[in-house]
Design a protein around this nucleic acid. Structure first.
Lengths: 203, 203
DNA sequence: ACCTGAACACCGTTCAAGT
DNA sequence: ACCTGAACACCGTTCAAGT
């Protein structure tokens, strides 16, 4: 038995437990469902206990964003394998990206939302994002395309950003219900991908 | 003098005044700054007066979104003139779109945000959006490109959606601070536009 | 078609005082 | 590194009663 097994202390890991539970609430009920009162209630702790780990709700949500971003990054990164050709790699990575957004719309929105933007400059989130494995992979794939004379030799980082932009745009349009061709997501992605790749192709 | 000039009634047009003032608050201070208490205070009315026109805060925000969308639509539509060639029309329209987002980030976010999505299916916002003059113009420009054998003959509506997606993606990345090449917005837009147009070009 | 003024349940945050 | 319990200012919304 632990030292205070019979006390009312029950979290060896309240800090992580909080963001774990917050992610659950976010995913199933949306951002507005996350109240500190409900969150601490679910974990069986007092409200003030939360302030031992995060100085405010905003600080906690920052941690939620980071955790959510890591999930997206991992999901996308896992989708690509080395044995694919360049076009297929980009196709697969992009499709995984959009799939994640559609599977976890609330998390996706939170990651790129602006609720906490005022404080974004303070942290180095943005850099971290662009240094994310999945984004770096994309840049590397593009550079590989340059060497193999498949893709136009523009700035690879910027080309990756353009690809990111269309994936981000498609994801947002889809999950926010601005495109009502729900049955044609495949066609829409296919056309987007084809257009981008044709536009980037050498010759 | 009007019939109740000396009374405490001062709005012949409270309904429109509310969304006008809400747009101002949104633009300058962000969505979270819109509280019904502050809003009615600014207009010098009682809080309960608001409920004569909108059944809830959500209902009022819906009207704010519609007004904001109309501004975007008007702004973009005004940017294109008939005497331009097809590529330049698309370039100009797209640039105007992004400029609006950067000029009015809070309004842009509100328009496409999801805070009110639950109720979006009830209304016909989405249809209205796709029936917006600026979007229809884009579809027409693309159809023109088909006839003149300049653009690939895909579904024009879907091609327009792909273009919309990259504009939406770029706008969001820019206004939410996810791209830190602020000085290179022009280059980023240039490359995006060139890639899309090359990808859509016939031959 | 508004007004005043009070009330309700909910929120994030901050205490003082304990273990 | 937590707990209880109370308090604060703020919020959207709903009244009853007036004009």
């Amino acid at each position: 038995m632990s030292t205070h097994n019979n006390s009312s202390y029950h979290h060896g890991n309240l800090k992580e437990g909080l963001i774990e539970e917050a992610l659950k609430m976010l995913e199933s009920e949306g951002l507005s469902s996350i109240t500190l009162r409900e969150l601490t209630k679910r974990l069986g702790t007092s409200r003030s206990a939360l302030y031992r780990h995060y100085s405010s709700k905003e600080e906690l949500l920052k941690a939620v964003i980071q955790a959510g971003f890591k999930r997206l990054d991992t999901y996308v990164f896992a989708s690509i394998s080395e044995d694919l050709d360049i076009q297929t790699k980009i196709y697969t990575l992009g499709r995984a990206y959009i799939n994640f957004a559609m599977l976890h719309p609330n998390i996706y929105r939170m990651i790129f939302g602006n609720e906490l933007e005022k404080h974004r400059e303070e942290s180095c989130d943005i850099k971290e994002r662009e240094d994310a494995p999945s984004f770096h992979s994309l840049v590397d794939i593009i550079k590989d395309g340059h060497e193999k004379n498949i893709l136009k030799k523009e700035d690879a980082f910027m080309q990756a950003t353009v690809l990111w932009a269309i994936l981000h745009g498609l994801s947002n349009l889809l999950i926010d219900g601005h495109v009502h061709i729900a049955d044609n997501i495949d066609r829409l992605y296919e056309l987007s991908f084809k257009t981008m790749l044709d536009g980037m192709a050498l010759k």
